[in-house]
Amino acid sequence: MRHIISILLENEPGALSRVVGLFSQRNFNIETLNVAPTEDPSLSRLTVTTVGDDRVIEQITKHLNKLIDVVKLVDLTEGNHIERELMLVKVKALGAARDEVKRTADIFRAQVVDVTPSVYTVQITGDAGKLDAFVQAMAPIGILEVARTGVSGIARGDKLLTL
């Protein structure tokens, strides 16, 4: 099963490599990885999506917690949560395809954020499934390049991941 694990990490040199190294060292999977600073300059927030049965996910969270630089973590998939990913897609936009790209983007509530005579760059946010569907829809028209941020997420309601 797919899990989304969000981690508050000390903003220290090498901290990220400890997390990434742990996954390869212990033969765990990383599907996506997203990391950026938080409102607290001493902390980064890292979100990793991974796949494994309950035993593997239990080991992943335990080993992550053991890392000294990991301050706190939550498996978002254990409760209601919001999951978002941002994707930028460059699509061939020539002739009739120009309208087709725009129409498809509208259907997905994506925005065209850059235009050249032959290329549209489209920005789309959503959960991973929506982004996959958009890629599929655009594929026949001609995708030139895809940049995805990887999943970020947060729990619904009052639940917080803070110190």
Binding site: P13, G14, S17, R18, G21, Q25, I68
Partner: peptide, 14 residues
């Protein structure tokens, strides 16, 4: 050496 030893230490500092 922090990188080399990363998988075999409890923690490391620079």
């Amino acid at each position: 050496i922090v990188g080399v030893t990363r998988p075999v230490v409890k923690h490391s500092f620079s």
